[in-house]
Design a protein around this nucleic acid. Structure first.
Lengths: 139, 139
DNA sequence: ATTAAGAATGCAACTTTGTTGCAAAAGTAT
DNA sequence: ATACTTTTGCAACAAAGTTGCATTCTTAAT
């Protein structure tokens, strides 16, 4: 349905603006995680670079998207699943996969991060797991 | 012993230069992972910014250090353990921990990354795990 | 439907971060 | 000590990210 992006914004108590809808649409249409740069490439002609920075920041804070760590100074973002968006809390305990061939980073929603035992005195708040390798499309 | 850094360079077939020794010393003295910026702060007056970039790159390639992904666009580096350095291959299957209080990122050398089952068609080459929370010093 | 208040955007200027080519300097092996 | 190779510093850039402020758009209340 066409209103999906708009609904997400309303659920997060954000005002509905053209740039936010557009950026959400880009995420909804993407099959992989996107870096700031990817989004800029798709809509820098329509919206200012600064707006994109601020929009991503806002989406992060509202829990609409989550970010995926990387070793290449290119933090990537992906839509959170329904639960995250509706509750406003992150439940991102899935594994992320980066393909060395096509370069795409995807959420493996069905693969949960296994439990880890931290040494005494450490408290866990968040956990991130990124696997590199070859994805099923490139294999 | 004072020659430790020099030995590491020789083992990796790198020429021994003042800047490399200095940067290695910084790592050897550090109890946590360092970002490029941290190193620059410690020795930008002595060595050029470009040299630091290139040195870190070289150390990475030679397996002297490994990098730790992050969501803040600040890739951090830490010394590899003996095994990595001597074999030249990475065996970084330990978990990394980032403390939300002191901001330090450390290697939990004794905590191995648990196995994960990837969906059919995916091949794993590398795996990274970063846990956020409160470290034992801040607790 | 209009309007007032608040929020988001675009622009400009700037800071920081990372890259490249090349000449000078330092390290290595003979 | 010398010739050869590697590394460094410099300069010039390119790219990425930030901030303040005036303008425009949204929203909610009349």
């Amino acid at each position: 349905m066409k209103k999906q992006g708009e609904d997400i914004l309303k659920n997060s108590a954000l005002s509905v603006t053209a740039s936010r809808k557009r950026i959400l649409d880009i995420f909804l249409a993407a099959d992989n995680a996107l870096a700031h740069q990817d989004i800029e490439t798709k809509c820098a002609d329509q919206y200012d670079r600064v707006t994109i920075y601020r929009t991503l920041q806002t989406f992060l804070e509202k829990g609409i998207i989550h970010n995926i760590p990387s070793t290449d100074n290119m933090v990537r973002y992906a839509l959170c699943n329904e639960a995250c968006i509706t509750t406003g809390h992150h439940h991102d305990n899935h594994v992320h996969f980066r393909c060395d061939a096509c370069g795409k980073t995807v959420c493996l929603d069905d693969v949960n991060i296994p439990a880890v035992n931290l040494p005494r005195g450490y408290t866990m708040k968040e956990i991130n797991m990124v696997v590199n390798g070859i994805c099923k499309s490139c294999k």
